[in-house]
Design a protein around this nucleic acid. Structure first.
Lengths: 189, 189
DNA sequence: CGCGCGATTGAGTAATTTCAAATCTAGTGG
DNA sequence: CCACTAGATTTGAAATTACTCAATCGCGCG
């Protein structure tokens, strides 16, 4: 739980006493490779703070093709946020690609924390602000860049993920076929 | 200012007294057609709550092509949020397409309001949550749908904008050329 | 150790873009 | 209020780009 404390303190000041309260809302979960954190069509009970491991959230389109919504490693938050926030059945899957541990938080817990502690409401707002900005950059990249450039940007932004994640998933994240990505990749060297 | 009050009360309870305080942070601005709210490379002093009119925020890529980041009409919030939140020079332009009025809020004002009034921090968090979810849906659409489907989705989601906005801008929002959009449009009828 | 998943490569195809030109529309100024 | 003009839309044809399908190779997981 020390990681959680540091993670929160990074953004907002909380007392040790408050943290004792905060941490009761989180539960620890160990996750193995290939294990689902979220299954399509099922209820989304939690969002997850990744302590270790690598995960992917993806959407299956009408033709059964995967599209990566987000990756997540240490200190990233992850869920099917559309379903989580709106309390709808999941339209995505979240799967573990590298075993690790996560902290689980229910929407009810999140809202209670926000209501009871102004600092936590602030924390979640700041986190959302950052996530919003990151998403906007991704939209701009999808609209304006060719696959080549999107790939280069990704490699620069997430050198770590480049190493740890099969390239076919990166292709799905960037919105190109793996063959095209492969060709870009070899042309690039 | 009554619109603002209703807009906030939609999400969080505030007293009349609080609102008297809140409204001092907002300034009214009338905007004419073709007028810039935000200019590329300049400082982004405000975010805007649209009271009336239609606006577009767009990004110019390396080849000078426009890509629409978002549209905004009544009751939408709008800014160059990447620049606004991070206090960087604007990388986008925001232009009025239909004359109207907006309320302006500085980042400092936003943060002060959030700090002083837990209810306002809550308000901004909820707004961001909704915006985040909407953006995620757009990313999924960009990744998984062909232009035809993206166009249909847009038409269903924003029938109002379909009427009020030149189609070339809708093309730029969807990430297709206007010619392609035009062909989809005529094939569709 | 072997099997399966991931990566690569090739060839043909489908889709969208680009360029160009004609037509239509709506905003502007007189 | 009308006429004019710049902007918006449509259409055609060629060119580009990425996709699909298929086959092979290689490596790491179980």
């Amino acid at each position: 739980m020390e990681k959680l404390k540091a993670h929160i303190k990074d953004i907002t000041n909380i007392s040790d006493e408050d943290f004792e309260h905060i941490k009761t809302f989180f539960t620890l979960k160990k996750v193995k490779r290939h294990q689902h954190l979220i299954q399509e069509d099922e209820q989304v009970k939690f969002e997850f703070l990744i302590l270790s491991g690598v995960f992917r959230a993806f959407y299956l389109d009408a033709s059964g093709k995967e599209h990566i919504i987000q990756f997540a490693t240490e200190n990233w938050w992850l869920s099917d946020y559309v379903a989580y926030f709106k309390q709808l059945p999941a339209s995505t899957n979240v799967i573990c690609m590298e075993a690790g541990e996560v902290l689980c938080l229910t929407l009810e817990g999140r809202e209670k924390l926000s209501e009871n502690l102004h600092g936590m409401e602030h924390f979640f707002r700041v986190k959302l602000t950052n996530a919003y900005v990151a998403q906007q950059k991704r939209i701009v990249a999808l609209l304006s860049s060719n696959p080549q450039k999107r790939f280069e940007e990704f490699a620069k932004l997430y050198p770590d993920l480049m190493q740890r994640i099969p390239k076919k998933y990166i292709a799905e994240y960037l919105g190109v076929s793996r063959e095209t990505l492969s060709r870009l990749y070899s042309a690039n060297k």
